[in-house]
């Protein structure tokens, strides 16, 4: 099958890749570019494990072709931490035990990061609705909601209402 050249930036780096026109974007990210933090849980748009940002918007990368990324700016979970420092959402997930097996976590954090960029102070209901396209089988979502609230407080520098958990390392 014919290959096409596709140009985009991913996590701030310009890339030019060869892709079959039928190749899913998630496979291009994982296999062509070796960024395996973006996961696949269904390939049918239901689980959200493959969520990335496309020009700042969360999208399910299993439901796009790689060629559709032409000229776009992509961010994956590998692009969240800046200079080795976790972003507030990543920090929140760690502090509040918002992950267990970690498989849904990259997609969940991409959705949460996008939410907090657009809504200043989401209510619990808004948070739950925002992540309703991301399935988690391990956590029961309670601590994911808390993790996002933690990140929200941190981003808006309001002090935490209760002491955070003791640090491990």
């Amino acid at each position: 099958m014919a290959l096409r050249t596709v140009n985009f930036t991913i996590n701030g780096e310009a890339k030019s890749v060869q892709a079959e026109s039928r190749q899913l974007l998630v496979h291009c990210i994982r296999e062509t570019l070796g960024l395996t933090g973006t996961h696949v849980g269904c390939e049918t748009s239901h689980c959200g494990a493959c969520t990335i940002h496309l020009d700042g918007e969360p999208v399910k990368s299993c439901t796009m072709f790689a060629v559709q990324a032409e000229g776009k700016s992509l961010t994956t979970v590998e692009g969240l931490a800046v200079g080795g420092t976790l972003n507030p959402v990543q920090e929140g997930f760690w502090e509040e035990h918002g992950l267990q097996c970690g498989f849904c976590t990259p997609g969940m954090m991409m959705t949460a990061t996008a939410l907090l960029r657009t809504v200043n102070e989401p209510t619990e209901t808004e948070i739950r609705e925002a992540i309703s396209g991301n399935l988690c089988r391990c956590t029961g979502y309670v601590n994911i909601v808390k993790a996002i609230q933690y990140a929200q407080r941190k981003m808006h520098a309001t002090p935490a209402p209760e002491a955070v958990l003791q640090g491990g390392d």
């Binding site: 933090g37 590998e78 969240l80 931490a81 990543q90 992950l99 970690g102 976590t105």
Partner: peptide
Amino acid sequence: EDPRFLQG
């Protein structure tokens, strides 16, 4: 184990 999961 979390730092590796959090960073993909």
